[in-house]
């Protein structure tokens, strides 16, 4: 028999330390997990969506580019189709404009109205935009068309999911 006797006091303090420690770990662990969560998260393909358009195919004439992605809303997953008018400006920069009219949200089209060639035309209330998306004064829209952010990877055009507003473009 071992001579080391555990006193009542020691036994109690070990037990309390053990149980207390266990409880402390149990409460701290989830917090730690949450703190490092962003690091552990797998990057879900980024915020850019691949289009079917190759960058070399783009000209200085705006062309319609449709791209699709899945969007989760609660537990409902839906397919979202976005449209962009894409062209290269004089400096060769790619411009990807949102077709959503800044007035009330109709879809604008390039060069669709005979009276207003080489402009974006909104069929709802006759809003007009220049090629770079600037709204033509005197027509209903109050601001320029939104723009998508873009990336080029292996010659393919990638666009952001949402277009964002431009100021004084």
């Amino acid at each position: 028999m071992s001579e080391q006797r555990v006193t009542r006091r020691q036994f109690l303090s070990y037990t309390i330390m053990g149980v207390g420690g266990f409880m402390a770990v149990a409460s701290v662990m989830p917090m730690l997990r949450m703190a490092v969560d962003p690091v552990l998260q797998v990057e879900a393909g980024g915020d850019f969506i691949a289009t079917t358009v190759k960058v070399d195919e783009l000209t200085n004439e705006p062309t319609r580019v449709d791209f699709q992605f899945e969007q989760e809303d609660g537990w409902y997953t839906s397919n979202v189709t976005q449209t962009a008018w894409v062209y290269k400006d004089d400096k060769g920069e790619i411009i990807a404009l949102s077709p959503v009219c800044k007035h009330l949200g109709c879809t604008v089209n390039w060069n669709s109205n005979k009276d207003h060639p080489n402009q974006f035309f909104c069929p709802c209330h006759k809003g007009l935009y220049e090629k770079d998306g600037t709204n033509v004064p005197g027509t209903p829209p109050r601001g320029p068309l939104d723009r998508y952010k873009y990336k080029v990877k292996d010659g393919v055009l990638y666009l952001s999911r949402r277009a964002s507003a431009v100021r004084g473009a």
């Binding site: 009330l104 109709c106 209330h125």
Partner: peptide, 16 residues
């Protein structure tokens, strides 16, 4: 079919 058409029309002419 009709509902899909209607939704697409709305998307094009949302403001009117």
């Amino acid at each position: 079919f009709i509902q899909m058409i209607a939704i697409e029309i709305e998307r094009q002419f949302k403001g009117r």
